[in-house]
């Protein structure tokens, strides 16, 4: 595909972030479509067919349709974006993505007046995704953002990692990256993007409404019911590394806090 042909022309502001090793990023994954163990995606995602791939964009858009991936990527400003990833399980990494702002694609599709939310869906293909043969989750995996969150320049669609194509276990060929939210919001292997006027049903809140909210903003002051979110373990820091304090909006408060002005983040968690 087109994603890996480029050398990143410009780097996004690095914020002094040191990326995790490629091994960290590609062997420690939550991608339940391939199994519950963090090593399962690296073990089993290799068999996923990512070419051909197409993405359906529908709902409240001027130009709905289904596009082959190459057409989706045509003309998109692919760059390296080094971002933090904070999992709801209280661990974190730094990842050098190759990608482009989701806003570029949404503008091309043309949100219609009345569009307020963006819903995303992962591929449903149990014959290649062994985890989907279990009924533990109502597949396909679904995520969603408010339209203003989706249009924010920090919200990316990623197609690569460390200057190369995105490995399947990281959500090839096209995944979302929302660095100020818990990792489960950053849905992988996207096949459908739908603009809606109502808040979409998303996988984790549907499964456990008391534990996971639609917003899922990283917030050290709002605990998950079963564990504290005040601190995090940094993957790759070694056996005796200290836990580090978790930052509001995962360190992106300056850029995104205004999106939530006036909202009680304990209610909208």
């Amino acid at each position: 595909g087109a994603a890996m042909m480029l050398a990143p022309a410009a780097r996004a502001a690095p914020r002094d972030l040191v990326p995790n090793s490629r091994k960290d990023i590609t062997t420690y994954n939550n991608f339940y479509e391939f199994g519950f163990d963090k090593g399962d995606p690296a073990r089993y995602a290799g068999r996923l067919t990512t070419d051909p791939w197409s993405v359906r964009i529908d709902g409240l858009v001027e130009r709905p349709g289904s596009w082959p991936l190459d057409d989706v990527l045509k003309g998109m400003p692919l760059d390296e974006h080094i971002t933090r990833l904070r999992c709801v399980e209280a661990w974190s990494m730094v990842i050098p993505w190759i990608g482009f702002p989701l806003a570029e694609l949404l503008r091309r599709a043309g949100p219609r007046p009345g569009a307020k939310y963006v819903a995303f869906e992962t591929l449903l293909r149990p014959e290649e995704m062994p985890g989907q043969r279990r009924r533990s989750i109502d597949w396909p995996y679904r995520e969603g953002l408010r339209l203003d969150e989706a249009m924010h320049p920090l919200t990316l669609l990623a197609t690569g990692l460390y200057g190369a194509a995105l490995p399947n276990q990281n959500g090839a060929p096209l995944r979302l990256v929302v660095p100020w939210k818990y990792g489960f919001k950053s849905i992988k292997s996207i096949v459908r993007i739908t603009l809606t006027d109502t808040q979409p049903v998303t996988t984790w809140p549907a499964l456990q409404p008391t534990e996971y909210g639609f917003y899922a903003n990283v917030n050290p002051r709002v605990d998950h019911p079963r564990w504290s979110q005040a601190t995090e373990r940094v993957i790759g820091a070694g056996l005796f590394a200290p836990r580090v304090p978790t930052e509001m909006f995962n360190g992106y408060a300056e850029e995104v806090a205004s999106l939530y002005a006036g909202m009680d983040l304990r209610t909208f968690y």
Partner: peptide
């Protein structure tokens, strides 16, 4: 596993 590096990228957990 710890000494040989086979414990994985998240040895603590």
């Amino acid at each position: 596993l710890v000494l040989s590096g086979g414990i994985g990228v998240d040895p603590v957990k």
